Simulated scan of single mutants.
Amino acid sequence: MISSDRYDGLMVLLRVGAVFSPERLETADILVAGGKIIALGNDLDIPSGWPVRVVEASHLIAVPAFIDQHVHVTGGGGEGGCGTRCPEITAREIAAMGIGTVVGVLGTDSISRSPADLLAKVRGLRAEGISAYMYTGAYRVPPPTLTGDIQRDLTWIPEVIGLGEIAISDHRSSQPRQDEIERIVSDTRVGAMLAGKRGICHFHLGDGKRGLEPLRRLLAETEIPADQIIPTHVNRHPALLEEAADYALTFNASVDVTAFEEAGDGLSSFDAVSRLLERGVPAERITMSSDCNGSLPEFDANGAYLGMKVARNTTLIADWQRLVHEGVLPLETALHLITTNVARVLGLHASKGHLCIGFDADITLLDSKLQPQQTFVAGKRIYDVNAEE
């Protein structure tokens, strides 16, 4: 449940069994104040009378709270009509998976769902303790915005950190021309520069024959740097994943794999990460996301809607755990895929993704099976598996 034990106005001292920053630290104590980590050490001595709440968790491992860069916080879907809209996600569903930060997206439906709805939901999640951001835009081009302009959205709205998810190589996309793609990416870059943000452009990849070609052309034919772009759903089918590996290696670019609950013709995020690593893609160029509360629609060969399910974030954590349990990656490296790498891609790396002095106190406590037990955001405990409903 979402805990009411927020420790407002107090310092918090976590005494844990081990700390991974993601790298293993020779420390077992984390002291938090003002939403930041202010000290790391062993057997920290706290002066008498200080307003410190101690959390004894010597049986748990402290890691950076996970970051999910692709969440349909207002619900996705709608491809089969108004009766097929997916539900909104709750703060509990986010925090229970050890996730402290999410980025909200709009997908196919930007008619009954709008950027204003998305902003309201993001602010609501923040009020409940989740660190939440959003992309302006949706599948279609020109993208819907809050102010009528991509640059103004990025410059004037703090919660907006990029553009997305723009659909390409998909029968549900608006089939944008190459010059249209270049224009919206350029607008995002300039708006982000004015706002002091990274301004990532988050591209939805469908299973169309063009694959990553629009993004390859963008990077090959313009001055846009590769770190401005993040293609997601690259594990939709094996050929696309192979193309994504070549794309990452050619442009030194990052790619995002989706934790599909039912991979179908595609690959699970576990298999996708494993194959990308086998192809020589550096682990620091791979991120994982959930597509949580988005739709998992099924279409026939002619594009007619057949049915759908709703994506959950449980698959993301399960596939990530499997990477460690089956020895594909050590814990220290696997953590980068859902913490440090994501923070860097989003431009949040100065405050999130590490357990370091001065960073946000976004901390997840895991048990020996890597299952989240407690989640702290800005030093406030927002989830405790042992708390009563």
Rank of each mutant, 00 (worst) to 15 (best):
P47Y: 07
G80Q: 10
P87I: 06
I61C: 04
T84F: 05
D43M: 04
H72Q: 06
R24D: 03
V55D: 01
R53N: 11
L44D: 09
P87K: 09
L10V: 11
G81P: 09
R53P: 01
G81F: 08
L25H: 01
E56A: 15
L40Y: 00
I61S: 04
S21K: 09
C82M: 10
I46Q: 05
T74H: 05
V54L: 08
Q69K: 13
D43I: 00
G81A: 09
I46M: 04
G78T: 14
E26F: 11
G78V: 14
P64I: 00
G78D: 12
A33H: 13
F20S: 15
W50D: 03
I30S: 10
G41P: 10
V19F: 01
P87H: 05
Q69T: 02
P64G: 03
I38N: 03
R15D: 12
G35C: 11
D29W: 10
H70T: 06
R24F: 12
G77I: 02
A57K: 12
A33E: 15
G83S: 09
I46D: 02
I46G: 07
L13Q: 12
I37P: 15
V63F: 11
P47R: 05
G83V: 00
E56W: 09
G35D: 09
H72E: 01
V16K: 15
L44V: 06
T74S: 13
A39Q: 11
G83R: 06
I67E: 01
A33R: 13
V71M: 06
P51K: 08
P87C: 07
T84N: 08
G49W: 03
E79Y: 08
V54E: 14
H70M: 07
L40A: 12
S58F: 08
T74I: 14
H70V: 02
V63L: 13
I38G: 04
V71K: 08
P87F: 12
H70P: 14
H72P: 08
P87M: 06
P64M: 00
V16F: 04
R24A: 14
G80E: 04
I46L: 09
R85T: 01
V54H: 11
E79S: 11
R15I: 03
V52A: 01
V71H: 06
K36H: 10
F20H: 15
G81C: 11
A65F: 00
V32F: 04
T84M: 02
G78W: 07
G34D: 13
I30Y: 06
N42F: 03
L44M: 07
K36V: 13
L14P: 02
V52H: 02
V19G: 10
E26P: 04
I30E: 02
G17S: 11
G49I: 05
L60Q: 05
V32W: 03
A39D: 01
A62N: 01
V73N: 07
C86N: 08
F66S: 01
D68T: 11
L25T: 01
L44W: 01
Q69W: 00
S58V: 05
D68M: 10
G49N: 08
T84I: 10
V54N: 14
V63Q: 12
V63S: 14
D43E: 08
S48F: 03
A39W: 00
V73Q: 08
E26H: 05
A39S: 04
D29L: 13
E56M: 13
G76K: 09
G17H: 04
V16S: 15
A39P: 05
